[in-house]
Write a protein that binds this DNA or RNA. Structure first.
Lengths: 340, 340
DNA sequence: ATGAAAGCGCTAACAG
DNA sequence: CTGTTAGCGCTTTCAT
């Protein structure tokens, strides 16, 4: 006899078993369990009773193969430890909860080749849709995405060339806008603190836009400081100390993310620096957990939840679209910049 | 003709298509693509070329049905926005990355009934194993878990009655140990600040153990403060203000999590309270992101990564075990308690 | 080293 | 309202 489960334990229960106990055909059991087609109340009851009694759990693999329908939506993000991604997932979940669709999460670890494998694995389960963070993928990944024949949405970024649909913000525009807000408030000796990883495409685009914005205003970017590793209070603190040691006369620090900005804020407050007069600060993302710092950090809402929701809606609509939905990031003044 | 995908677009590509292009049997293609059995180098090359040329992606649904093997491991956690769970997932991923197994994440939203549905959904895909956070589940969920016939591991908690295997810490012991550390350092007017949710079983168990530990030392718990909603700096700040308004002479505050403790710490520092002399603080979890606060919060490492790794190892071993692995939480003194 | 036949558990389609 | 038949795309088994 063939092995039925990894341990060759009891063979798995089938519709047939339920059908026998209930005294009906497999087809009738199938109809009852899926609430499809008309079944008399009496038979329905008997079937339910039999299924419950046996502890029957349907085999979705067989069902999916027969019906060619899989109620899964693949979601590929770089990581779960950076809070931005769970926020997007939250938005996706909000929408999919109203449908029979279920998200299945995969992580790329910021590695395009690994991402390609994850996408391949997901597609091999024939999901009903795929949502992938970012616009930068390997050629092979793009080819798979283009040919999958399912709704395909790239999220969080619209600066680039989507394979099909995209939902996100323009990070270049976000950087440019932030430059404008800072210059308008009279800051002129401006430093940028961010990730050295070229794999962090969105942060790189913000920096690019930020530089453009400053250039347009005729203000140079006075200094930069980069870190390898992960963002956090410690990282923000260390970078802040470093950049001010190098260039003590900076009057503004623009961080790639609120987490680092928070570390910088705490450091500067300890040093007795007057914020926002002596030095102004801004971050990115508008992390809610940080409400409760001594000062609210000036930041820009990256619309993560909205993006997740809209992407899920596109997938749930179940149409092959190449629509590009662009959200506008929202500047939050907070307490760490001079009043505008 | 039957619909082949949700849009009745191009029919899905099959092994047969690759076989035709390569001029061999389906069986040979299958063997090449799975690297199973002996195939001549020449045919292998031709098959690979054909598969690449066609952009063939195997159908895991059909493969799983035929082979009765599914390389997925279900992981059910309450939420992704609380950082403790991504940490466990990280540990799981570390181990599964060395195997053909892939984690599939589901969230219960702290709702046992929802959790039951998620477990049911997962089991219906016939995964190779299941990892579920916590020991508290509905009767139906426990029954499903007991009968699934696959490696089953409950994680993060060992205070209770596991369905099968369990990997975690004793939160009661953690609470008791913390009580000991606090009393030993001379604090006597102690307050607890935590979640009002009875669904947060692990925090409740820590509180229970904390009370026991204090009682054993003959010290009463002087006051408590509970919040609904999510933890964060704002929540910690508000609770701290509230409990000290009620009971101003407290000399120690024990928080359910570091996130809240951090909010409390910042609030007290602003008020000019002398820490750890006038008031001591402790949290739980040892969140790394918080390194970089003005003071390191006394805390207890909940061994999240170790737990994830060990749980994944049990699943990867592919044996039906009911082993209970108990990790010891580790007290971290930090800067917010008097030196021991 | 390769192929042919059978069937995994379920559902679509049709028959009654 | 219920049952029968065929077959989803792949892998197992057995044959050559």
């Amino acid at each position: 006899m063939r092995g039925r489960n990894p341990f060759d334990g009891k063979p798995q229960m089938t519709l047939r078993d339920v059908a026998e106990v209930a005294g009906v055909s497999e087809m009738t059991v199938s109809r009852v369990l899926r609430q499809r087609g008309d079944v008399s109340a009496k038979t329905r009851e008997r079937v339910f009773a039999a299924a419950r009694q046996l502890g029957y759990v349907p085999n979705k693999i067989a069902g999916a193969l027969a019906s060619n329908r899989v109620n899964l939506v693949g979601v590929v993000i770089p990581s779960l430890s950076n809070m931005v991604f769970p926020d997007v997932l939250g938005g996706i979940g909000d929408i999919l909860d109203e449908t029979p669709l279920q998200p299945v999460i995969g992580t790329s670890k910021y590695d395009p080749v690994h991402e390609e494998h994850v996408i391949y694995e997901m597609l091999s389960w024939r999901p009903s849709g795929l949502i992938v963070a970012g616009l930068e993928h390997t050629e092979a990944a793009r080819a798979m995405m283009a040919n999958a024949g399912i709704p395909m949405v790239e999220v969080m970024d619209v600066d680039g060339d989507p394979v099909a649909a995209a939902v996100g913000i323009s990070h270049e525009a976000a950087g440019r806008q932030m430059a404008g807000e800072i210059v308008r408030r009279g800051y002129r000796r401006i430093g940028y603190l961010g990730s050295s990883s070229i794999a962090d495409h969105r942060a790189q685009k913000r920096l690019k836009g930020f530089r453009q914005g400053l250039a347009e205003a005729g203000v140079p970017l006075s200094d930069e400081c980069f870190y390898a590793g992960s963002s956090g209070f410690g990282t923000g603190r260390a970078m802040t100390q470093e950049i001010l040691a190098k260039t003590p006369d900076l009057d503004f620090l623009y961080y790639n993310t609120d987490m680092n900005a928070a570390g910088g804020l705490l450091y500067l407050l300890e040093k007795g620096v007057s914020i926002p007069d002596q030095i102004g600060l801004a971050g990115f993302n508008c992390f809610e957990v940080l409400n409760g710092l001594p000062l609210r950090i000036a930041s820009m809402d990256s619309r993560r939840k909205d993006i997740g929701r809209r992407a899920a809606e596109l997938v749930a609509a179940n149409e092959l679209t190449d629509e590009v939905v662009r959200f506008d990031p929202v500047f939050l003044e907070g307490d760490t910049v001079r009043r505008g």
